[in-house]
Design a protein around this nucleic acid. Sequence first.
RNA 1: AGGAGCGUAGCUCAAAGGUAGAGCACUGGGUUGUGGUCCCAGUUGCUGCGGGUUCGAUUCCCGUCGCUCCUCCCA
Length: 422
Amino acid sequence: MKYYAPKGLNDITPDDMPYWHAVESEVRATMPVYGYEEIRTPMMEKTEVFARGVGEETDVVEKEMYTFDDKGGRSMTLRPENTASVVRAYLEHKYYGKEELSKWYYLGPMFRYEAPQKGRSRQFHQYGAEAIGSNDPALDAEMINLATDILTSLGLNEVGLSLNSIGCPDDREEYIEELVEYLNPFKEELCEDCQARLETNPLRILDCKNQACSSIVEDGPEITDYLCSECRDHFKNVKKYLDQLNLSYTMDPNLVRGLDYYTKTVFEVFSSDLGAQDALVGGGRYDGLVELFGGDPTPAVGFAGGIERLVLLLEELEGVELKKRELDVYLATLDRETKRRGLKLVQRLRNSGFKTEIDYLEKSLQGQLGYADRYGADVTAILGPQELSEDEITLRDMETGEQTLVPLSDFTEKVKNLLESE
RNA sequence: AGGAGCGUAGCUCAAAGGUAGAGCACUGGGUUGUGGUCCCAGUUGCUGCGGGUUCGAUUCCCGUCGCUCCUCCCA
């Protein structure tokens, strides 16, 4: 084979498509129920949108962006996530003046340059929601409710919810100081990456999976102990609302998320049935992002979920109902003349909305019936020279094998009757 | 970026330093124009690519390309 799709960019073939459609239609059905409208932003932005929005020190910006110069010499980047773009669009179209609370959802491809593995590819797909304009902790709870609703509606019940609050920037500053002070004596025991993080981004040490690092962190200070009264109160209420909604969660003091814009509530939904990449959904509040992009201070909260990972789970799940190609009618023809007449009949059936197929492989009648059977045709119409000479056609009920000869003039009508009597 | 594994028929997978196999699928026949089950027969391969060792390599060695999983982080 000479040509392959580029590494990490995958085809979604017709075999996979039923799962994708299941996810996409669930998203499109559920989002409006919670009051979210769709927004579509471009698949690329000027690089600074992500560099600034997501944060210069993040893994995503530091090493995972697909960045290139366009012909005008502008640095462009394929979107690695969608929140920054949505906020940019929110400000660009001045939605702050149009509505007090913007509730939007999206669905589409994202790009990150990483080594592909199970549940991770360079082009991947996310669905997500953003609510811009309210700091109500009930909205955080709604967001989590929405995210889990989509998963459970798809039949995934075995998922976990991790929750934390990383407070406001002031809280974090204070906490980071404490954290660094605590970690400094252990500096030599930390992994190389974390030794660097101690300088650049100490919070990221919390979610380092290195055994040594995590056991050191375990006995260290927890950020929730450093929240200001407002943030503490906010978080307390988020939890209260979650209880109210019967959404169970696990507190994870080390959950800090990889993107810089988060404030207060952060959460992840994961599945133990996935491989190493077990996060299905990630999200949180980002009260500072709108302001960072030049707008008035505007609180916001959102989440994003990965479609590939969902599809992986759905494929393993029994009882997901999938609509495969399935025929209503197959029209068998036996020679050139009957094929010619048959095409017209097929056109008529299709215009009436029946899924209809005719032979293009020069199969024998036996072969054609086999094909009809394989694709689940309810009725096979047989048009041979015998039928044609009498202006008739044979209708075969594929379930019973019963055949009737009907006048060509009544064809569509008779097919319709047969299908309806099923 | 580093580590591990794997590339054999359309698919799933065997084999073994000496003629490359099975199941499924496909085609034909049993049924001159009748599916599902059954029986019989048939088609299918640059064994990823390049080099080396050898009388002989698909097998052993080296390289290369591709895929997969893992480390890190995340969707």
